[in-house]
C-alpha cells in the first residue's frame, strides 16, 4: 500500500499540521512503509467478529446528577497563551 503526496497533504490538513515539502516527502515514504506492514491484516478472516473498542468488557458507570464544581475560571485561564475579559482569545473567526 503506498499513499500519494496529495493524500499526505490532505491528512495533514485534517490533522491541522503544517508540513514542509521535505516533510511531505518523508511522510509519504514512511507512511507507505508503515501501511505496508498493515496489509497482512487483510488476509485474516474476521467476518462476524465484533470489533473490540475496549480492552476489558465493561459497562458504563453513571454519575449522580449533582453539581460538584464551582467557578474556577482564573485557575483555568492561568495556562492560556492568550486571554481577555475572562475568555480564551483566538484570531478572528469568520462564519
Amino acid at each position: 500500500m503506498s499513499i500519494t503526496v496529495e493524500t499526505v497533504r490532505h491528512v495533514a490538513t485534517l490533522a491541522r499540521l503544517e508540513i514542509s515539502a521535505e516533510e511531505t516527502g518523508i511522510y509519504t515514504e514512511q507512511l507507505s512503509r508503515i501501511l505496508g506492514l498493515m496489509e497482512q491484516l487483510q488476509s485474516i478472516p474476521t467476518e462476524g467478529v465484533a470489533p473490540m473498542s475496549h480492552a476489558v468488557a465493561m459497562t458504563m458507570p453513571e454519575r449522580d446528577d449533582t453539581v460538584t464544581n464551582t467557578n474556577q475560571r482564573d485557575t483555568l485561564l492561568a495556562n492560556a497563551p492568550d486571554s481577555e475579559e475572562g475568555c480564551f482569545r483566538v484570531p478572528k473567526i469568520i462564519e
Binding site: 490533522a15 501501511l35 498493515m38 487483510q42 485474516i44 474476521t46 470489533p51 473490540m52 473498542s53
Partner: peptide, 30 residues
C-alpha cells in the same frame, strides 16, 4: 508524534475506516 497523528488520522479517514480501523478492532478481539 506527528507521524503517529498522521497515521491515525489516515486510518480513521473517510474510505479507510473499515479497511484499517474496524479490521484492526476485529483482529484485536481475535
Amino acid at each position: 508524534v506527528k507521524r503517529r497523528i498522521m497515521l491515525g488520522t489516515y486510518v480513521l479517514s473517510s474510505g479507510y475506516y473499515d479497511a484499517y480501523y474496524r479490521k484492526a478492532q476485529q483482529v484485536r478481539r481475535l
